[in-house]
Design a protein around this nucleic acid. Structure first.
Lengths: 111, 111
DNA sequence: AGAGTCTATCGTACATCGACGATACATGTT
DNA sequence: AACATGTATCGTCGATGTACGATAGACTCT
């Protein structure tokens, strides 16, 4: 307890970003770790890290999953902010959001 | 792809520990991150880190959850190896498995 | 022995995940 | 205009997660 809860008198806003309360920290970290809480999503992230960018179709080719399933996993990864999709119709070029990944790494490291 | 898959001719055993294939890496990381993929479990882990050890009852007191629910989360954390429970009947003293936590941190950092 | 304390497990109910095929949508090509 | 391509979404199904109350098990203490 009391890892920071006592130092934040709720002054204005942005306090949360400075001294993250336990609850907010937990929700943030849980959301990001949940994005990686499936082997398929971990593999997708690594794929994107290796290639720096990747078409959706290439990801599907590398995975033993249906296209719709991969698309669902990509949607989850997008919602958590870990990946971004540049639309280049009809293709979509996915890439890692390094900022979000860094945040995840920091949150885990700060455990 | 091919982050290590090509260098492991399946010589004997223990090869997995040296050059983790993508699939195994993904499953390992997914399992560990899944343990943290719920705010309640993140809070439990932080609680244990702050106190170095903790009775189950104390955890329940800190959380807005029923005792049985907390027990379930603790079971998950035990199954993934992140926490250990020393039985001191009828109480149980939970503590962090720092080795498992270090492994999680390394896997995330190596992303 | 009997009562009290602490934790785990059971049973249940609801929500969500994860997988798929089918289909819709947007764009480029013939 | 018709077609082909690449992706997202829908609908569905089974499996699993999350929550709770109730109950069982294992000690301690009186």
């Amino acid at each position: 307890m009391a890892r920071s809860k006592d130092v934040s008198p709720k002054c204005d806003a942005t306090a949360e970003e400075l001294t993250l309360p336990d609850v907010a920290f937990a929700e943030d970290l849980a959301k990001l770790t949940w994005a990686l809480a499936h082997p398929a999503r971990v593999r997708i992230v690594r794929l994107l890290l290796d290639r720096t960018s990747c078409m959706c179709g290439e990801i599907v080719d590398e995975m033993p999953l249906a296209q719709s399933t991969v698309s669902q996993h990509l949607k989850i990864l997008k919602e958590t902010g870990l990946v971004q999709g540049e639309i280049d119709r009809p293709r979509v070029c996915y890439c890692i959001n390094h900022q979000a990944l860094a945040k995840l790494k920091k949150l885990v490291a700060d455990l």
